[in-house]
Each structure stands twice: as C-alpha cells, then as structure tokens.
Design a protein around this nucleic acid. Structure first.
Length: 126
RNA sequence: ACCGCAGACCGCCUUAUCGCCGUUUUGAGUAUUCAAAAGGGAGGAAAGUCCGGACACCAGAGGGAAGCAUAGCGGGUAAUACCCGUCGGUACCGAUUUAUCGGGAUUAGGACAAGUGCAACAGAAAGUAUGUACAGGUAAUGCUGUAGUGAAACCAGGUAAACUCUAUGCGGUGAAAUAUCAAGUAUAUCAGCAUUUAAGGGCUUCUCGUCCGUUGUUGAAGGGUAGAUAGCUUGAGUCCCGCAGUAAUGCGGGAUCUAGAUAAAUGAUGAGGCUCUAAUUUAUUGGAGACAGAAUCCGGCUUAUAGGUCUGCAUUUUUU
C-alpha cells in the first residue's frame, strides 16, 4: 500500500484554498474537522491535502508544528481509505480544533472515524 | 568530601519500520519528471524585534528647522546604546597604624556664574521677603550689623533618568526588498520629440529648494494577478596552532564546508538504554525528560531554560 505524502499531493495554491473556505463543505469528529471540495487538478492527481492548527489554540510555534506533523502522519497512514473510495478529485483541509493535547493514538482513531463519516456523507449527496 | 559565588561549555542516546526537504552520482526520457544509491537536514537562545551593520531599492535621498540617540578618559570593532581597560562617585566587606590600605560589587558620570522650573523639615521669610531682640546710623525709613532657623538667607548654593544648553552622530523603506522568465488579460507604464505652465503629486516630519505634470506622436514594452528562477547561503564563517597586547581584539599559518523550506521539510511510531521522580515487595512497577522550532545574513543586548561537565575563588569537616 502507498503511505507517501509527496509534494504534488500538498495543498499549496492560494486560489484553491480560498475556494475551499468560501465554497467547501465540512465534516467534524471532535476535535478534528475536515473541509472538502470537489475539483479537478492536472492529470494523475487525485487529491490535495492541507493541514492547519489554529494560533488561538496553541500560542507556541513548537506546539503547532507538533500537531500539524501528527495530522500529516495520520493522514498519510490512512489516506487509502479516501483514495480507494473516491470517484472524482477532491481538495481537503484538515483541522485540529481544541486546546487539549491528544495523544497520537487518540488522533489516529479519530482520523479513521472522520474519514468514514466523510465517505458516508458524500454517498448521501450523490 | 560538602555547600556557596563567578565564568565557560553541553543540553538525551542507540536502533527498526513508515515518511518529508535539499545536494551529488548513476540509469530512463525530447522534456516536465521518474527510479536507485550515497551523504546532509533547527537553537543556545532559532524567541523578544530593543540597538548596530552588510545588502537592495527609493529623484544623487541638497540646505535649514524640528525630532531621535549618545555623554569622565583611553582603546577595540564593519558598527553600536556592545566589549575591554582605567579614573571618579556610591554602598559594603576585611585588615590594622583609626585613618589609611586591600578586595570584589555597582554607577546615563558633559554643563545649573545663559535662562526657566522644582525643593521635605526647620524658619518671619528659600524671593519681589524684610518679623523679633540688641547695637550702630539717619530728618525719617530693614539704612547697616549681630543674634536666631537651615546644607544654603541676596549673594550665592542643590537639582539636568526637570525643561534647557553644549559636543558628536543619524535620509527613508525592508527579502512580501529587488532582478529575470514564460502564461492569459488588454493600454492605466517608460523613453524621445513637440505642446501646455495651473490644479495636483513625488522627494516618507515640516520648510526652502527641486523634480514630475497636459495633449499629440514615434519607439520600447510596462502594470496588476497567480506561478517559476535568482536573491539564498563561502561568511566581519568554523576549528586548531603561533605571535603581539593587561584585556577587548588584531596579525600570520594550516585544516574545513556545516539547513535553505515557502500553507513552509528537518518527523511519527515501536523497542532498548540514560537521567529525574513516586510507590513499595529494595529491584521491580508507574510517570516525566527543560526552555523552545530556522525564514536574507552577521555583531550585540534582553528574556525563557530540567539536568549535567569543567575551571577559579571563599567557607566548613576529615586525614597527614
């Protein structure tokens, strides 16, 4: 299975991010939140993912970096859940929305639950 | 051996699996790229953004004023508000010859006979004031002296981290600077020439001064938007040795290359060790591992830091 998180899978374009915030929909599984929007990229690219931790919740840069790394890590290890079940390209933004310091284990289970919830939701929309 | 003070240095380690960002080499491909291998990948403060520079641009950014900064003396430096040395002041400690010597600490430490302001207590009064007692003097009067208060009483003194003055220095902006490239949008840009001379705008606080200006035409290609490349890491670099100097530091020689991301890499998880800590079954179990994350680069300052190592000084104890 592919567990990588290469450069072209990262959400970088400011325009796409802007669209995501204005037009995107979201699912939550406390304390995680996933904003998503269907869209097309250049050929071969199925998915774009960005990660964010609010400055409000964590004042120090070290803490923000730590949780962003955790989010990237859980995404990387669980992204097959998304890729295997998507029939069109999506862009995502992944948020950590609490002041509590959850462990890796907790975040990992929450991520899996969140991805499953997301898949259910887009099936309903179809 | 123990505790205290000062300075310097280090600031978790090993490994497996799965990943991320550069570099080099090899292979494939017209190319964007893809694959493999090797090697590298946060700090002493990367922080606060408080000073000083390098570098870049702004119209050669010129004069004056204002403003800001600095303030014994000498030195260091690219430069500083930093660093070193030294003199003086301040409080302290030790010694004794009781007034000197020694010690470390600390200190914005130029000018109050240029002007203005401020000043506890005491005092009639601290400046447009003249009271009381005594003495002298006068036509008469605080006109003169003494006493009394106070550090200081009309003539000065204290105070400038009070205004101020003096000397010296300072143009502004800030890597989202700036340069180049290709894409789509379609004249709002620049240069030359001719024309117009007044509204306005720029020169980043004001003013003087100065520059631009309106329209037409010719030429070049500009502007905003998202992106790429450069800037971007070889530098006042790091380490070692020698010489000069009280020192800061300088000079000479040798070795070495050590992060360059851009919604932003430098990681996550497991196992073992190390340190600290709680409980007890005293060698097991549980918990914790400080402060904190590069963003153009250097030199300082300030603040946050568990634990550890080394050096120097002083105290106490033991042994000889």
């Amino acid at each position: 299975m592919n567990f990588t998180y290469p450069k072209n899978e990262k959400l970088k374009s400011k325009i796409t991010i802007g669209l995501l915030f204005t037009e995107g929909k979201s699912v939550s599984k406390y304390p995680l939140r996933l904003v998503y929007k269907a869209g097309s990229f250049s050929e071969g690219e199925k998915i774009k993912m960005g990660v964010s931790v609010s400055k409000k919740n964590f004042k120090k840069a070290v803490d923000r970096n730590y949780f962003k790394r955790l989010l990237r890590e859980t995404y990387r290890l669980n992204k097959h859940l998304l890729i295997d079940n998507l029939d069109q390209p999506y862009s995502f933004m992944f948020f950590y929305q609490t002041k509590d310091r959850l462990s890796y284990e907790e975040i990992n289970t929450k991520t899996i639950q969140l991805f499953e919830k997301f898949l259910l939701q887009i099936k309903k929309e179809d």
